[in-house]
Simulated assay, not measured.
Amino acid sequence: MTTMTSALRAAARALAVLGPLACASPVLAAEAVFPPAASVGLAPPPGMTPSKAFAGFEHRSGASILITEMPAEAYGQLVEKFTPDALRATGFEAQGSGAALSVAGGEGRVLRGRQAANGQSYTKWVAVVRGGAGTGLVTVQVPEAARAQVPDAAVEAALTTIAFRAPGSLTEQMAALPYTVGDLAGFRPVRTLMGNALMLTEGPKDIDPDGAQPLVVVAPAMGRAAIPAGQEGAFARKALATFREIKDVTITDEERTTRDGAVFLRLRATGTDAKSGRPVAVTQVIRFDGPGYLRVLGLAPADRAEALARAERVATSVAMR
Rank of each mutant, 00 (worst) to 15 (best):
R109N: 02
V40F: 07
R304F: 00
F164H: 11
P50F: 01
A104D: 12
R278N: 09
S61V: 07
K247R: 14
G298M: 01
V314S: 07
D210A: 13
G108T: 10
M320E: 12
R112W: 03
E245P: 08
R278W: 01
F57R: 02
V285N: 10
A74E: 11
P214F: 03
D303E: 15
G131S: 08
Q95R: 14
P143Q: 05
A175N: 12
P167H: 04
E73R: 12
G136I: 10
Q284P: 04
S25D: 15
A24C: 07
T192H: 05
L297T: 06
L8K: 12
A94T: 03
Q115C: 02
L159Y: 11
D183V: 05
V318E: 07
L15R: 14
T270K: 13
M48I: 02
G131D: 11
A99E: 15
K52T: 14
A12L: 13
A16W: 11
G56M: 10
T68R: 08
K275E: 14
Y122D: 12
R310M: 05
C23A: 15
R256W: 02
T49Q: 11
V138R: 06
S169I: 02
E31L: 11
G106K: 03
K205E: 08
A74T: 05
D303L: 09
L193S: 13
E93C: 04
G230W: 08
